[in-house]
Design a protein around this nucleic acid. Structure first.
Lengths: 335, 335
DNA sequence: ATTAGCACTTCGCACCTCCGAGTGCTAATA
DNA sequence: TATTAGCACTCGGAGGTGCGAAGTGCTAAT
């Protein structure tokens, strides 16, 4: 990727984000001052296509960005221009705020209005559940069952697969270690430090410990008292590329399905607050949302209520603007 | 409306509810055993059209029901067949019920699934606001200002118009009476009986008292802590007549606008619980929803939480089934 | 390495035609 | 007088055609 290719890729993405139409070599020539001819740009575009960054909807049409093109853009090319009007918590309509739920709804409505995309906020009241105890049971030589008993008497089990074989003895030892450290821990207690400590004590299979921690965290997470707020569904109708009922249906279906929705936030589960996560297209992990991108972050509200805020828009979303939006929201909350 | 016209109207509505396509004279002839020819049916259809019960999308097409046709059907022709699987509260997925809000969400999801339409539930926590005092101020000879001060220090004012003139003295007298009876009353205190009592004491203008009561009730109502749950948006995509993005957009836009939504329940505000209200097309009072009907009822949940449940579907909705659905929900709640 | 020029491809719009479905009307019938 | 058979008429929608605009890839020249 020489500088000229990057310039052209950036031009294509900016144009496409703005106009939602395939970008031609001529457009780039006219609007971006590269001192080369359209034929040269075409050659570079062919190169960018074979690199996988852009694609053609059909032969003899202009180019549109591919997912990896957006990823390259977000990682390397994006300007951090702060043109965006700073998000202002004061703009919230305070007249119907009577509790945290109402407040979050107003935040969602405001963010949806500012971003022009759809906003998802999860409201998570601290779950009371803790690990009561857990057990690892060997199944086959490369599989084991993780049985998890929670304080609420719920029992959950998960099948673990190992890359390498593990002996019964080792499983027993790991069970003991895990119980020693995890019993009576709630979600807040399952920290990265704790994980590291256990890996130090049980160094023979760090990947397995990683996996178990992820499962335990998810299990406790599921027992939290979660409400999901979705606002700005209507904004999808402003996007010219979603001009077919089928596409809208797909979007609404997915956003009405709570179990699917929470997957959007998989990446940031347990991550530090204020860190912005960007998932592009397939990175979301939901086939139905492969035309969308998500910008999300963890957030803590008052009274021990935590949550996640996500902005979901088309892959050709205004990344800079919406990252800035979420960042400035976070900064104001911290103050 | 002789019996044969009613039979034909009923046939047209049943067919259209089922198939969403204009109904022809031949269809009626084939599927409903009227011992007349299609020509006769056509004559009757022309008559029904001039009565306003049905209409033609275009000349030389079959007939579709008009709003007043549905109204006639609901009022006079509908079979109260209880084919519907009885609504069963036990079908609710209890695993994520941790509070009343979650419970209502599950009820909404279940109802949306059973009805195949969109379900709206309002969750109204008792507002603490009471009438602090009120005042009537004469403006012009047929207008006055009603100033309402609530315990929360909120001040609201409304312009009243009278059919007949009212003197300053009478306004003063009414203000005194209203203050005597309404001060320190919360929403529950504003009863029909109280209204009747005041009308008895101040018999010169019952309509005015009615209007003031409505305003007072609405004012306190607005101060309640309301949350609105909407589930089953996706069901709109199952309706063949909503096959255009514009129509879907219109629907979603309206249902995402909380201030519009509450109008759906205007009719049943303060009505007895369990009574089913049916609004067809324009009767909803929202231009955007003129292609929809609403079946709604008041409901009380636990802990003094009240609410309203509404099923919103196309005007060609399965009225019988959904009325039964709501009724059986109510019966089970009462038990 | 770059570029001018050109042949080629595809999309999408506008237009046309044709067929099926359904009506309203007229004249005949019970 | 109420009903009906028959027929001309209308409309929507599916399917086919033609054409221009937009844009590319390739070749040959610089």
């Amino acid at each position: 990727m020489d500088s000229r290719k990057e310039q052209i890729l950036k031009a294509i993405i900016k144009e496409y984000i703005f106009g939602a139409e395939p970008v031609s070599s001529k457009t780039i020539l006219n609007r971006y001052g590269l001192n080369v001819s359209s034929a040269t740009i075409r050659n570079e575009m062919a190169a960018l296509e074979s690199l996988g960054y852009i694609k053609q909807p059909h032969i003899s049409s202009g180019r549109i960005p591919a997912s990896s093109g957006y990823r390259y853009y977000v990682d390397f090319l994006m300007d951090n221009d702060n043109i965006v009007d700073k998000f202002n918590v004061l703009d919230i309509n305070t007249s119907n705020i009577k509790n945290i739920h109402n407040y979050l709804k107003e935040v969602a409505i405001l963010l949806a209005g500012l971003s022009n995309y759809t906003v998802i906020i999860t409201e998570e009241k601290k779950g009371e559940d803790k690990i009561h105890h857990l057990k690892l049971v060997g199944l086959l030589e490369d599989k084991a069952l993780l049985v998890l008993v929670l304080s609420s008497q719920k029992v959950k089990d998960y099948v673990l697969s190992f890359l390498e074989k593990i002996s019964e003895d080792e499983l027993k030892k790991l069970t003991e270690i895990l119980n020693y450290y995890l019993i009576d821990k709630n979600m807040d207690g399952i920290t990265q430090e704790l994980k590291q400590e256990i890996i130090n004590i049980f160094p023979s299979n760090p990947l397995l410990v990683e996996e178990i921690f992820k499962i335990v965290l998810t299990a406790l997470y599921e027992e939290r008292n979660v409400d999901i707020i979705v606002e700005g569904l209507k904004n999808i109708f402003k996007l010219p590329e979603f001009n077919e009922v089928k596409k809208i249906e797909n979007f609404i279906n997915t956003l009405e399905d709570q179990s699917q929705l929470s997957k959007i936030f998989d990446n940031i589960l347990g991550q530090e607050k204020g860190k912005i996560d960007i998932k592009i297209g397939d990175e979301i992990g939901l086939e139905e949302l492969s035309d969308f991108s998500v910008i999300a972050t963890n957030c803590s509200f008052c009274d021990g209520i935590q949550g996640k805020i996500g902005i979901i828009g088309p892959t050709r979303m205004f990344y800079e603007k919406n990252i800035t939006l979420l960042e400035s929201l976070f900064k104001q909350k911290e103050e």
